[in-house]
């Protein structure tokens, strides 16, 4: 049995603007999303800003009612059996908020242990274990207001695990964390996975998703546009290659962005994206199999100073960019 099943979830928000003359606007944040998560799986939910990832999670963790569709966790309906569902899920979001700043790490955990009805006699041991797991042992007596972002994030994860939930939701846990901290965080998440936890993770870092996730769903404008293992998603563009051209156009008439459409129109080109670098740009061209477009691309970019040109295998990021920009 799947741990989580979502069937055609939808969520519409009504926003109003203006004080006197109220303008109502409907935003369809999630438009018919279905997926399932199997026990022990680390499931990635990817998608650009505003794609509807957090909204989907909020419906699953019972903070929002779906406008339509349904979902169940361990066979419990997230609307009808909300209270029971809450016993089996943990929720962690990224950023440095969501903790009681004036309290110590230990008291933050104790409070949530109370809310999750962890028996008083088990609390001390459980909190000790979790502090150890997230590497905060020795700092538990300090007030959270003095904690760095990475420490806060690890404390959040400890909090989400207090009641040993069957399913853990991690909504952008690595946001704003330095590379070393993010690496430690990934190790923690990987550790949870090998300990058998089922996890739903959202992130904007593709290498992170590639490294951690067993399966990934890509959400774009409220709809699932792809689902599969990282390898399967890459395979969607693997039948082909990627040409990367370094350019140094600066700003001006020879701006490389003005040529994107022309490059995109070349035969054999699937998509084109321009990434900024400190000293210029990188033009990333997805190419169909068996076609060599390098010369044509360089021809189209004539007038712009060009640096290194490489042809490489696609990454998960390439697959993602292609999925959400098509």
């Amino acid at each position: 049995m799947s741990i989580l099943e979502a069937h055609d979830l939808r969520r519409t928000f009504t926003t109003t603007t203006g004080v006197l003359r109220r303008n109502r606007k409907q935003v369809e944040a999630v438009r018919g999303v279905s997926f399932a998560i199997e026990p022990g799986e680390l499931f990635g939910l990817l998608g650009p800003n505003g794609a509807g990832k957090t909204t989907t999670i909020k419906m699953l963790i019972t903070l929002l009612l779906p406008t339509a569709g349904s979902a169940n966790i361990l066979g419990l309906d997230v609307v009808r059996d909300a209270r029971e569902v809450r016993r089996h899920i943990g929720y962690v979001f990224g950023g440095d908020r969501g903790l009681y700043e004036r309290l110590s790490a230990q008291d933050n955990l104790r409070y949530f242990a109370e809310l999750y009805a962890v028996p008083a006699r088990d609390q001390r041991a459980r909190i000790g274990e979790l502090l150890e797991l997230v590497g905060l042992t020795g700092r538990e007596k300090e007030r959270v207001e003095g904690f760095s972002r990475g420490m806060r994030q690890r404390l959040h994860i400890a909090r989400g695990l207090l009641h040993d939930p069957a399913l853990l939701f991690l909504d952008e846990p690595s946001i704003g964390i330095d590379p070393v901290g993010a690496r430690e965080l990934r190790a923690t998440i990987a550790g949870l996975r090998s300990a058998g936890k089922t996890i739903l993770l959202t992130t904007h870092y593709m290498f992170e998703a590639d490294e951690l996730c067993d399966r990934i769903a890509v959400l774009s404008q409220g709809e699932l546009v792809a689902e599969g293992t990282p390898a399967q998603l890459k395979a969607r563009v693997t039948a082909g290659s990627v040409v990367e051209v370094e350019t140094f156009s600066g700003v001006g008439p020879a701006d490389v962005r003005g040529k994107v459409d022309a490059v995109g129109a070349l035969p054999g080109v699937r998509s084109v994206v321009v990434d900024d670098r400190p000293d210029g740009e990188t033009v990333v061209v997805q190419v169909e199999p068996g076609v060599d477009v390098t010369a044509a691309v360089l021809g189209t970019l004539s007038g712009i100073r060009v640096g290194r040109v490489v042809t490489r295998e696609p990454t998960l990021e390439d697959a993602y960019v292609q999925l959400v920009s098509s």
């Binding site: 809450r86 969501g98 009681y100 700043e101 809310l115």
Partner: peptide, 18 residues
């Protein structure tokens, strides 16, 4: 302000006791 409300409300805690 602490943005803890979402987390608190995602727990099964009995609201009256809370």
């Amino acid at each position: 302000w602490t943005q803890t409300l979402g987390i608190v409300l995602s727990t099964p805690a009995n609201r009256v006791a809370l």
